[in-house]
């Protein structure tokens, strides 16, 4: 039952095997995806035909188009990067504002508004997507009817994708930043005021640097959540498809190992961002 209590050998072996199997289950898909990015075959499946870097660097001359020459795929990576950057910056900005609002101030119905703030995390992503789709369409129609104005930018497209992802990623950012702000000693801000700083300067020079680890952590997670989002994006996407949408379409068509190559790229990106968010959490001055 515990490391400190005696356990019979067979039970230890069975338990150990179970744990090992579990982690095999956990890692197998990831390892397989990464490995088959290097398979010298046009299908990401058995048999293993030898090692190749074709799926990264082949220019299409041997009938294989590698990741670095696959224009549509690279374009969608670019779109995803753009969307993720916008979502990250927006959600961090609103997240900081929300954290100050809920941690520093009292106002009527605060508890109710806090509950409201948490809502986007418990609404299924598909539904967030369709509700924003429906609402933006209503606005477009209303503008058209009232002012004969065609609000093209509110049609499905990147702006809606950004807004859709922003709508729930902001809650996550708010929670992470609030947790850090709660640890902040208000005396530090008073000390800054006392040393001649104005209110905004005090926040800029003392509070924001204190929040930096949380901003980096929340930023990394926000970037990743946006980059990998599928459910909400699917409902709001227009003609410019972010990476997950392009990958999804390719997967349904049945694809070449170039998808493995992109996946490997995604895994490396995730690992880098994960590392960043974890390191920023440690070594933060209290």
């Amino acid at each position: 039952m515990l490391a400190s209590l005696p356990r019979s050998l067979p039970s230890r072996i069975i338990y150990g095997l179970y744990v090992a199997l579990f982690f095999l289950y956990l890692l197998a898909p990831l390892v397989v995806v990464a490995t088959f990015a290097f398979n010298d075959s046009v299908f990401p499946s058995l048999p293993w035909k030898g090692f190749t870097l074709d799926w990264f660097i082949s220019a299409g001359d041997n009938g294989r188009l590698g990741l670095f020459y696959d224009k549509p795929l690279l374009e969608s990576v670019g779109i995803s990067l753009m969307v993720a950057t916008a979502v990250t910056l927006l959600s961090l900005a609103v997240g900081v504002s929300n954290a100050f609002l809920f941690e520093r101030h009292d106002f009527p119905f605060k508890g109710f508004f806090y509950m409201l703030m948490l809502m986007p995390l418990v609404i299924p992503g598909v539904i967030l997507g369709i509700s924003i789709l429906v609402f933006s369409n209503s606005i477009v129609n209303a503008l058209d009817n009232l002012f004969l104005y065609e609000a093209e930018f509110l049609r499905p497209g990147l702006l809606l994708v950004v807004l859709g992802q922003f709508s729930f990623i902001t809650t996550m950012a708010t929670l992470v930043i609030s947790a850090r702000l709660r640890k902040f000693n208000v005396e530090l801000e008073e000390a800054a005021l006392n040393l001649g700083a104005g209110r905004l300067t005090a926040v800029r020079t003392v509070t924001l640097p204190f929040l930096k680890p949380a901003l980096i952590g929340a930023g990394a997670v926000a970037f990743l959540m946006s980059f990998e989002n599928f459910n909400t994006t699917l409902m709001l996407v227009g003609s410019d498809a972010p990476l997950t949408i392009t990958m999804y379409d390719r997967l349904r068509e049945g694809s070449t190992p170039v998808i493995n190559a992109v996946s490997l790229f995604l895994m490396v990106l995730s690992a880098a961002l994960a590392l960043m968010s974890m390191l920023s959490g440690r070594k933060a001055p209290e």
Binding site: P29, T244, Y248, L251
Partner: peptide
């Protein structure tokens, strides 16, 4: 940390 799409793939 890895995209759901990659996992499913």
């Amino acid at each position: 940390w890895v995209s759901e799409l990659v996992r499913t793939f």
